[in-house]
């Protein structure tokens, strides 16, 4: 079967999202909805564009897309309310 080959290696936009980088890290962030006030600091600093403040009913808090989170811990480090904790993934627990 013939593959499609774009002229001159031109690429379509936003194709990286096919790559789920969520299995890269050892840790993952857990958001404490009580402490989170939806200030979006974590959202602004996340290098993997995978934490987003969402409004759920009356509440507003950060939601992590674990499909892409590499577990760098930046969100937890910048959170002004200590609302995010990094936890070790189960498979790395001895």
């Amino acid at each position: 079967m013939k593959i499609k080959l774009n002229l001159g290696a031109i690429s379509e936009p936003l194709q990286s999202e096919k790559l789920k980088t969520g299995d890269w890290g050892t840790h993952y962030p857990v958001v404490d909805k009580e402490k989170c006030n939806g200030c979006k600091t974590c959202e602004q600093y996340c290098p993997d564009l995978c934490i987003e403040v969402k409004e759920v009913g009356e509440e507003k808090y950060a939601v992590v897309d674990y499909n892409y989170c590499k577990g760098c811990g930046i969100c937890a480090s910048v959170c002004p309310f200590e609302a995010i904790k990094m936890e070790l993934k189960d498979i790395f627990k001895v």
Binding site: L14, S16, T21, G25, C46, L49, G71, C72, I74
Partner: peptide, 22 residues
């Protein structure tokens, strides 16, 4: 609308995507 997508290959904690998306 995203202007820079998730799934890129930066190391965890890299500053570059933060600057670029900003």
């Amino acid at each position: 609308m995203k202007y820079f997508g998730s799934g890129h290959g930066a190391c965890p904690g890299c500053g570059l995507p933060i600057a670029v998306k900003t």
